[in-house]
Design a binder for these strands. Structure first.
Length: 260
DNA sequence: ATGGCAAATTGAATTTGA
């Protein structure tokens, strides 16, 4: 099974980009985050015509929104309202015997202090709930993907020292994400494939004059697999060139090929 | 350690992203 995860930053604005970049890759499943549209406006016909007729989505106006788009039938799907909100940050689907979780973890605002910044508290609570959930429900034949908005390792950011107090790379976030992987029973498939030293990014800010030459990236997007899937990881790709497309998303697609 | 940007909404300015 071949699966991609991509924070698309508006699926309606970039539906042509998605189809252009991903058609021809032989993808079975495409997981999108930040679709930024209500379900009634999701471009389902365009995906169906391109060969992905099965869609499980959860969107709202303006913000957030996730979708699992599949060539293969979706046998069941569900979602959870994490931290008691209905803000469309999670959907899961069962496809070809695998349970696929697609997450958009809160960005967390600017100030890394939950007493000053409720958004940071929301992010930490979200991670705590995810951890408790997967401890109580250990994943099996499962894949977890998404924009988790945390770059946990030194080699996940352009400067660990300069980003140590910047939301996405603070100690508490890094600890919570690594604990979620460990205690939650997940394998970081990207790091399993590339090792912990190689510098890897999945996001580059829109604000850089030249994203490529400044190259101040962060690995905020992730693909994890349950332990029973570890030996099936056949290939991992981070599609960096997509950041250089016309009207790009600030995130690039991550692709995993899992042997069946 | 940001920030030079971007998208969606509501109506040129605001919110959010990270």
């Amino acid at each position: 099974m071949k699966l991609a995860s991509w924070n698309i930053n508006s699926v309606r604005l970039r539906q042509t980009l998605v189809l252009d970049r991903l058609e021809g890759l032989g993808l079975d499943v495409l997981c999108l985050q930040e679709t930024k549209t209500e379900d009634q406006f999701f471009p389902v016909d365009a995906f169906a015509e391109a060969g992905w007729p099965h869609i499980a989505m959860r969107g709202e106006k303006s913000y957030n929104g996730v979708a699992i788009i599949s060539r293969l039938p979706i046998t069941e799907n569900s979602y959870q309202n994490w931290t008691g909100r209905t803000d469309c940050r999670h959907i899961s689907a069962r496809i070809n015997g695998q349970t696929i979780h697609n997450f958009y973890v809160p960005a967390g605002g600017d100030e890394p202090d939950r007493t000053l910044n409720p958004k940071f508290g929301h992010k930490l609570d979200f991670l705590d709930e995810m951890t408790a959930h997967f401890i109580a429900n250990p994943p099996q034949s499962s894949i977890l993907v998404g924009d988790l908005n945390i770059a946990p390792l030194e080699a996940d950011v352009w400067s660990s020292r300069q980003l140590r107090n910047v939301v996405s790379h603070t100690d508490i976030e890094r600890e919570k994400l690594l604990n979620l992987i460990e205690a939650g029973g997940w394998i970081d498939a990207v790091r399993h494939h590339y090792g912990t030293e190689e510098i890897l990014y999945s996001w580059w800010s829109y604000r850089a004059r030249d994203w490529q030459s400044s190259n101040r990236g962060r690995r905020l997007d992730h693909i994890w697999v349950s332990a029973d899937n570890q030996e099936k990881i056949a290939k991992i790709d981070i599609d960096t060139p997509t950041r250089g497309a016309e009207k790009p998303s600030d995130h690039v697609p991550l692709i995993i090929e899992l042997a069946s």
